[in-house]
Design a protein around this nucleic acid. Structure first.
Length: 580
RNA sequence: AGGCCAGUAGCUCAGUUGGACAGAGCACAAGAUUCCUAAUCUUGGGGUCGCGGGUUCGAGUCCCGCCUGGCCUACCA
């Protein structure tokens, strides 16, 4: 159950819904008991601030014209200290225009709440989020960015809502590719290149070795032999394997640092290696697995899915086995409430299958696959073979250098070091926002200009709005020493000021919705709308030069916009520099 | 062949339990800076919401059929 935070309800319309609900019950008695009226922000400011559409839906059950229902609700409203005026429009919409006093009071209550209205939904329960998960000995490319950025945003969102989040990087650090790599490494690796660009070198070695397996059977056998030796624990091969992981992690961590992404665990597939046999034994014990064409499979006809292979015909285990063992291990160690996997869309069937197997084993953890559309290039799918992969570090480099060019032009006086730090925040912010502002499930066609856009609906637009507020508030402090905007009464007179207040008040509900739907884009949209309102307000109305009471109120409104932007962008993992 | 997803303005995309004349950004056109950061703001044109049925007081949203595109469909992950 959702527990409501200290002062402010998560949905800004809730107090109004309660007000309408009381009138509804007064007017209709028992007939009203089973329904709860909902109040949502208006779809158009000209209708008012909030609206309730439920009278139309109730027409059937109450057997009355919707307009009559709406009228009777409105007539029964408690008018003493009413938070809003209500009127009926169209077939039975109840439009609510809230009083300035109510609006100011609600906003002030939100401002005084330490959690800014975010409810503690988690109550300390544990969620494991499994994301990023690149393959060892291969460079991270733009195909990894969505999992990393979306996963990290979910990490931050759930933490903000009171969950204990364990971010687990389930590295691809085990499997047949290591036989090819070890054998190739001994034959082809160049120490100099390995020192200068380790991952490129490992990748080159792998490609060369792999190519040879296709035309040289003896080579292929040698690779297989190395793999067997590794799996049997041969010290030399293990040492090499550890070196590959070590080199890869160093490279990955450089990128994670640039992206401000951190993990609580780095448990690759190899971590579960010694649990695979027991996992399969358990499946057999429970009578869930059977032989088929030499492999061991779990039939899933009852779920309408093809069989799930848990042991290959050569006796080896595959990813399904590892994933099942991973769930069992996580349940035993962490007792998580949920496990969320963030991967691309191609793995949907695999996840549905192994989730089903887990349920058959009696797992009670809520397992969830958050999938996202594959990123592709305008000319088609990117692929290693065609060499049209865009490496993640190259993307980030380009993002930063584009940002730096603009900063040098617009802020030539800024110290070089500060320009570069700013370019990092803005460039990385642009890349992250370009991803997070889209619904994860939509495919993204990658173009440099779109991924690195610095105007319009972009990360820098939001960062710019924030920096302008900071600058303005500094000037306010100078102009009015000793003034505390937090104590100023809120006078929300202009329509755009009311809209700003309403938008801010929807922030907690938006965070909840973004987390529950695993769609950070919902929060990104909200922050963009807030920035648009603010930019319009800023451009059209004086703040520092307004009459003192108005000036102080507007300064306070600015502090609240800044707070939402800083905290909201923070939940998306996007930095908010104080100066641009 | 079956499954999942998508199809909304020239382009990229939003669009809470079905709700009021379908919204942004980019691009295009015209304007705004002696004044709090113009990476901004204001105004304008522009859409048979893939097609056809159905349910409903009401459908971009739900149901059925079709068209187009992407991905998946047993020993890669």
């Amino acid at each position: 159950m959702t527990s409501i935070s200290t002062v402010t309800p998560a949905n800004a319309g809730e107090p109004l819904a309660a007000w309408l609900q009381a009138a509804f019950e007064k007017a209709f008695g028992e007939a009203a008991q089973d329904t709860r009226l909902r109040v949502l922000p208006s779809t158009d400011p000209s209708f008012g601030d909030f609206q309730c559409n439920d009278a139309m839906g109730l027409a059937k059950t109450l057997r009355l014209p919707p307009r009559t229902i709406a009228t009777r609700i409105v007539e029964a409203l408690d008018t003493a200290d009413a938070p809003a005026t209500a009127n009926i429009a169209g077939p039975g919409f109840i439009n609510l225009a809230v009083t300035p006093g109510w609006l100011a009071g609600q906003l002030a209550a939100l401002a005084d709440d330490a959690r800014f209205g975010l409810p503690d939904i988690g109550g300390g329960r544990t969620i494991i989020i499994d994301y990023s998960s690149p393959n060892v000995a291969k460079p991270m490319h733009i195909g990894h960015i969505r999992s990393t950025i979306i996963g990290n945003a979910l990490d931050r969102l759930y933490q903000a809502l009171g969950f204990k989040v364990i971010a687990d990087n389930h590295l691809g650090d085990w499997g047949t590719q290591f036989g090819i790599l070890i054998n190739g490494f001994r034959a082809y690796a160049d120490p100099g290149r390995l020192r200068d660009a380790p991952i490129e070198e490992l990748e080159r070695v792998y490609r060369e070795s792999y190519a040879r397996t296709e035309k040289d059977p003896e080579w292929l056998d040698a690779c297989r032999a190395e793999l067997v030796r590794l799996q049997q624990g041969d010290p030399d091969n293990l040492a090499l394997w550890r070196q590959f992981i070590d080199l890869s992690l160093r490279e990955f961590n450089r990128i994670y640092e640039r992206l401000d992404v951190t993990f609580d665990l780095y448990r690759g597939e190899s971590y579960y290696n010694d649990q695979l046999a027991a996992t399969v034994a358990l499946l057999e014990e429970r009578g869930l697995a059977r032989e088929s064409e030499g492999a061991l499979v779990v039939p899933l006809d009852d779920e309408g899915m093809p069989v799930c292979i848990v042991r290959k015909s050569d006796g080896g285990y595959n990813y399904a086995t590892t994933d099942i063992a991973t769930v069992l291990s996580r349940e035993a160690e962490f007792q998580p409430d949920r496990i969320i996997y963030v991967t691309d869309e191609r793995q949907q069937l695999h996840f549905r299958q192994f989730f089903a197997v887990c349920r058959k084993l009696g797992c009670t953890t809520r397992l969830e696959h958050v999938w996202f559309g594959l990123m592709r290039l305008p000319e088609g799918t990117f692929s290693t073979r065609q060499g049209n992969v865009i490496r993640l570090d190259a993307l980030l480099d380009e993002a930063e250098s584009r940002a730096l060019a603009i900063i040098r032009e617009s802020s030539p006086g800024m110290p070089e070091e500060q320009q570069q730090a700013l370019a990092r925040d803005i460039g990385i912010g642009a890349v992250k926002y370009a991803d997070l502002s889209h619904d994860p499930q939509n495919m993204i066609v990658f173009t440099w200009d779109r991924a690195l856009a610095l105007d319009g609906n972009s990360g820098p637009y939001l960062q710019y709005a924030y920096a302008r507020i900071r600058s303005l508030l500094d000037k306010y402090a100078e102009a009015c020493p000793g003034c505390d905007p937090a104590k100023a009464p809120l006078l929300l007179q202009e329509p755009v000021e009311r809209q700003l207040a309403l938008q801010i008040m929807q922030y907690p509900a938006t965070v909840v919705r973004a987390a529950e739907n695993c769609k950070p884009s919902l929060l990104a949209d909200h922050l963009y709308a807030l920035s648009q309102l603010y930019s319009s307000f800023y451009q059209r109305f004086p703040i520092l030069k307004a009459d003192p009471a108005i000036r102080d109120s507007r300064a306070r409104l600015c502090t609240l916009v800044a707070r939402v932007l800083r905290e909201g962008l923070g939940l998306l993992g996007i930095a908010t520099p104080e100066r641009i």
